[in-house]
Simulated assay, not measured.
Amino acid sequence: MTVKTDLKKELGLYAPRRGRFEVVTVPPLRYLMVDGHGDPNTSDEYRDAIQTIFPLAYALKFLSKRSLDRDYTVMPFEALWWADDMAAFTSARDKSQWRWTALNLVPDWITDAHVEEATATVRSKGGAPRLDELRVETLDEGLSVQTLHVGSYDDEAPVLAELHDVFIPDAGLTMTGRHHEIYLSDARRAAPEKLRTILRQPVSRVD
């Protein structure tokens, strides 16, 4: 019988409470990654990154089930976000200045050889426009603060302001890594006011 793993439950990092900031420790995790910049609503780069990551994510799932007898649920889309001037992201919301890395988490038993095999399968079918730019890399965020935001992406600014300017300094922490978002809802199907997004910020303790 094929074993099926729910990585969200196994990691225990995908169910924060709305309106509450939680300090967590995120272990090193392996992701499919594609970099880009610009407004995600209008950027061909962003659309092409999504259209590349998910075919490979599902090819890896099917390869794992077929070859390793280990099935798992493909994880939600995630992204790291930043800008040369972070105000362009948090308060000014100048999306043309945004930089990002599109992410999809893969299980730790997926090797580079598995990725190469799945990539060849996806390439043979076409339709993954940024496959040559995709890489697999470990992201080690460690100590982080996260919360669940329910609502449109453009309504995140007040939550981020409270996180960055109030909670983190009051907790004796300082920001270290890049802003991380985990999209629990499918924006193509859910109403903007019902979108569920985990907002995560890596931090370190102030000495």
Rank of each mutant, 00 (worst) to 15 (best):
V23W: 10
V24K: 05
V26E: 05
P27Q: 03
P28D: 09
P28Q: 08
P28A: 05
L29V: 01
L29E: 10
L29F: 01
L29Y: 03
R30Q: 09
Y31R: 02
Y31V: 09
Y31L: 08
L32E: 05
M33F: 15
V34H: 13
V34C: 11
G36R: 00
H37F: 14
G38R: 02
G38N: 02
D39L: 05
D39E: 01
P40L: 04
P40W: 06
N41L: 11
D44H: 12
Y46Q: 13
D48E: 13
A49K: 00
I50L: 14
I50E: 12
I50P: 15
T52Y: 14
I53C: 12
F54R: 10
P55L: 14
P55I: 15
P55Y: 15
A57V: 09
Y58C: 08
A59E: 05
K61N: 04
K61T: 00
K61C: 07
S64I: 00
K65G: 12
R66C: 10
S67Y: 14
S67E: 15
R70V: 08
R70D: 05
R70K: 15
D71F: 03
D71V: 11
D71Y: 01
Y72I: 00
Y72L: 04
T73H: 11
V74W: 02
V74L: 00
F77A: 12
E78K: 00
E78W: 03
E78Q: 00
A79L: 01
W81H: 03
W81D: 03
W82K: 06
A83N: 04
A83F: 00
D85V: 07
M86K: 14
A88V: 12
A88G: 11
S91G: 12
A92Y: 07
D94V: 10
K95F: 10
K95D: 05
K95R: 13
K95M: 07
S96D: 10
Q97Y: 07
Q97N: 09
W98C: 03
R99T: 11
R99K: 14
W100E: 03
T101F: 14
A102L: 04
V106C: 01
V106Y: 03
W109S: 05
I110R: 03
I110H: 05
T111R: 01
T111S: 07
V115Q: 00
V115P: 01
E116G: 10
E116A: 14
A118L: 01
A118C: 08
A118Q: 02
T121C: 09
V122C: 12
V122L: 10
S124F: 06
S124Y: 10
S124C: 12
